[in-house]
């Protein structure tokens, strides 16, 4: 089965985050509603807005650190992941841009494991709930590059330096709390 595991905070007892990517999703609204209602304990992302695996990885890391330190500002660890992907501290804006929406066709669902490494039954719940084709994160299809460039204010001069769009996005995410 295609499943991507991400290290969150490294260390012997550090919980990891798991993600499942679905393409051709037909019931995005139901999935998002389930996450909102708390019946799906995971974060639901729009696959077109997530620039890459490293960005998602960093968002998980930042969410974990924020929760561990008691500095989280969103509703929980999973909402914190969505906020971690953003360059702004506005939670609502982060959900609009990076969260799954009614019309999303590609969904990335991320959930932290529990302390013992179990997935709290999330995988079974995800498989039961999402109507779509399970795929690997890298095969999720095209990202919304134009919108990402606009949101993160990334210009051609920066991209001409040879770094990737993901590098530029990572740097904007990184300075969010000191900007």
């Amino acid at each position: 089965m295609a499943r991507v595991r991400y290290d969150a905070v490294p260390g012997d007892d550090a919980p990891e985050a798991r993600s499942w990517t679905f393409a051709s999703v037909t019931n995005a609204r139901a999935v998002v509603d389930a996450a909102r209602a708390g019946t799906l304990d995971a974060c639901v992302l729009d696959g077109r807005s997530v620039v890459g695996a490293r960005a998602l990885d960093m968002a998980c890391y930042r969410a974990r650190v924020a929760i561990d330190r008691g500095e989280g500002v969103a509703r929980g660890a999973h909402a914190e992941i969505i906020l971690g992907l953003s360059h702004s501290r506005n939670v609502g804006e982060a959900f609009r841009r990076f969260g799954g929406g009614e019309t999303s066709e590609t969904l990335v669902i991320v959930a932290f494991e529990d302390a013992s490494g179990g997935d709290r039954g999330i995988e079974a719940r995800v498989m039961e709930l999402v109507e779509g084709r399970l795929t690997s994160f890298d095969d999720r299809g095209a990202i919304d590059e134009a919108s990402i460039k606009t949101w993160f204010k990334i210009g051609d001069a920066e991209l001409a330096l040879g770094g990737s769009l993901e590098d530029a996005v990572l740097s904007r995410m990184a300075i969010r709390d000191v900007a």
Binding site: V65, L161, L170, D177, A179
Partner: peptide, 27 residues
């Protein structure tokens, strides 16, 4: 710390080859 991280990002925006920032842990 803030000034350093922000300046590196601004420098790259201007087209200056500088390391890209991966994460800032202000705490």
């Amino acid at each position: 710390l803030s000034a350093e991280a922000r300046t590196m990002v601004r420098a790259r925006k201007l087209g200056v080859l500088a390391p890209h920032v991966v994460h800032v842990d202000a705490k």
